[in-house]
Design a protein around this nucleic acid. Structure first.
Lengths: 118, 118
DNA sequence: ATAGTTTGTACTCGATACGCGTACTTTTTT
DNA sequence: AAAAAAGTACGCGTATCGAGTACAAACTAT
C-alpha cells in the first residue's frame, strides 16, 4: 500500500532511524510502514507526506504526480520527477530545459538588479 | 480528520446506509468515520475517495482542490495562477518570465529540428 | 584484521481502537 | 398515527498498532 516510501527515503539518503526521528516515531514503527507490515494512522500518514513534500495520494499510489502543484514549489525539485509534470506545446519539458531556464532567469534577474530597483 | 465526508455525502443525497452499502461496510462503521469516532483503514480510505471521485488529500483537508489534479499540465495554464506555483531561488517565477521561457524553449527545439534527429 | 557503530529486519507484548451488531432516538413517509 | 428509514450511541471480540528489544549485515575507524 505504501510501496513508494522506501524509494522516497532513499532518494534523500536517510536511514530508517533518521526518518523515524523526524516523524517522532520508533524506527521499528516506520520500518513497518515501509515493509507493508503495518499501516500508519491518518495523522502519521499526513506527517509522512509532509516530510517527503508530496501528497498522500502519491504515497498511496493513486497518482503519479510527485508534487502538489497548488503549493509553491522550488523549480529544482521538479527537474528529476519520474513523470514529467510540465508541458510546452504538449511536449514534456526536459531536465536540461529546466536547467537552461533557471540559468536564463537568473541572468535576467541579475541584469535587473544592476539597473537598480525602481 | 475527515470533516468533509458528511458534506460530500449530502451533496449526493445519500444516506449513511446507502453509502456504507456502496463501500461494502456497516452503516455504523461508516458513520464512525463521519463523526470522527473512527478512522478508516488506508484501503477503505482509498475506496471512499474513489466513491466520491476525489482525492485522499481532499478528504484529509490537505488540499482545497476537489478533483484529482491532472497528471501533466501545459505550462500556459500555470502562467496566471493566483498563487505563483513555481519558485527559482525562492522567488516566484513571474508570468513574463514564463512567457520568455516558452519562447526560449520553442526556439531551442526548432534549432534541434533543423539539424534533424540523429 | 577486528572492535565498535550503524543500518535494516524480525519478533514479542500490552494497549489501542477497528468494525460489526444492535438498540435507541429522531425524522420522514404513507 | 403507524411504519419505515435515517441518524446516533454503545458494547464486544479481536485485529493490529506502536514501542521495545534482539539480532544479522554493512560500514567505520583504530
Amino acid at each position: 500500500m505504501l510501496d513508494r516510501l522506501s524509494e522516497l527515503r532513499k532518494e534523500r539518503k536517510w536511514s530508517l532511524q533518521e526518518t523515524a526521528d523526524q516523524l517522532g516515531i520508533a524506527k521499528s514503527t516506520y520500518a513497518g510502514y515501509e515493509s507493508g507490515y503495518r499501516e500508519p494512522s491518518l495523522l502519521s500518514l499526513t506527517q509522512i507526506a509532509e516530510l517527503f513534500e508530496t501528497t498522500v495520494d502519491y504515497l498511496l499510489g493513486r497518482t503519479d504526480e510527485l508534487h502538489r502543484m497548488q503549493k509553491r514549489v522550488e523549480i529544482t525539485t521538479v527537474i528529476h520527477t519520474p513523470t514529467p509534470s510540465l508541458l510546452i506545446d504538449g511536449e514534456p519539458v526536459t531536465a536540461d530545459e529546466i536547467i537552461d531556464f533557471i540559468a536564463f532567469i537568473r541572468s535576467k534577474r541579475d541584469l535587473k538588479l544592476e539597473k537598480g530597483p525602481a
